[in-house]
Structures are given as structure tokens and as C-alpha cells.
Amino acid sequence: MDNPVIATPLNAAKIDTDGLTVAELGHTSKVNLRGDFSSSTVNNALTTLLGMESTLAPNAFVSNGASTLFWLGPNERLIYTDSDPETIASQWRDQVGTGAVDVSDYSTVLRLSGPKVRDVIVSGAPFDVHPDEFKVGQCAQTRFGNASILLSNHAETPVFQMQVRWSFAEYAFEYIKRVANYV
């Protein structure tokens, strides 16, 4: 058997128009983690498994290069990681005794940059992305059109990431493409 192709929902599609660049990231390993993030058990697991700490404000994310940890809820985090997601998940279950699931394929990630980014996003999201309100290092689960998204702010230039479920990826991408002409 040949090496199987690792697909993403948009086959690495891109938008490159005046004021907006959008690119689908390649396959990214992701693990959904549950637990009491104020507990030492969780903190120890984060440290040993990922080299990270569990102190994370709501609607924020932190990265150490190899892994990025997103706040999803009071007892829920999402990790993007270079490590093997199945291994992380099973070790988490062993060490913490709570839930951990490999969700690498559940969603894809679009990276948006350029001066039009904010106008494009608020065309579909009822969420204020003004730099005073949504700063670098912050993330938010909201909606874009009818798609639930995880939005994160990565640089002041600006650079945003939009994580969207696999089955909604084409919808979100076409939505972005259409409004890019209008803003």
C-alpha cells in the first residue's frame, strides 16, 4: 500500500486578495482535555506531557512552540501539539483520570492575515474584534455565519486563526471569499 495522503477539508486552499490572505493550515494534531485545571494533578500532567502550565485566563491561549493550549471552558482545554495525540490522550487519562480525546480531524484551521481581516470576520461574527477588546493571546468561541468557530488573535499585524469543523470548512471558506470582495 502506498503512503496514504493526509487530507484536509480544503486541500490547503488559499485566498490571496487585496488586503486579505487566508491559508488552511496543514493537518494539526489536537487533543481535547478535561479536568480541574486548578488542581495539581492537572498541572503536573500538563508539565510532564506538554511542558506547559495550567494557569490560563478564560478566552486566552498560550503557546510554547511545540504546543498551544486554548481555553474552551472552565474544565475544558484544547491543545494543538507536535506530539502524538493518541499518546497524549491516553497518558492524560492515566495521569489525571478524566477525559481526553484525539480531535485532530474534527476541525481545520484557517490562518487569516492582512488589513481586511477584522472587517471580514465581523461580517459573519457578532463578536467584537477591535484590538482594544480582543488582544493578541486571546481566543473566543463564537460563530461565523452559521458555523461555530474558535477564533484566536496571534499578532498585531493582524494575524487571526479560525478553527472550524471539517464539515463546515468549505462553507466558512466560501463565506470569507465572498465577503472579502465586499469589505
Binding site: N32, G99, V103, W166
Partner: peptide, 13 residues
């Protein structure tokens, strides 16, 4: 109760 539900609809083809 200690139960954790996670949607994995799109995780699997």
C-alpha cells in the same frame, strides 16, 4: 457525575 462528552462526528470518516 464524572462524565465527559465530546463530539467526534467529524473526527471519523
Amino acid at each position: 457525575w464524572e462524565v465527559y462528552c465530546t463530539s467526534v462526528t467529524e473526527q471519523w470518516a
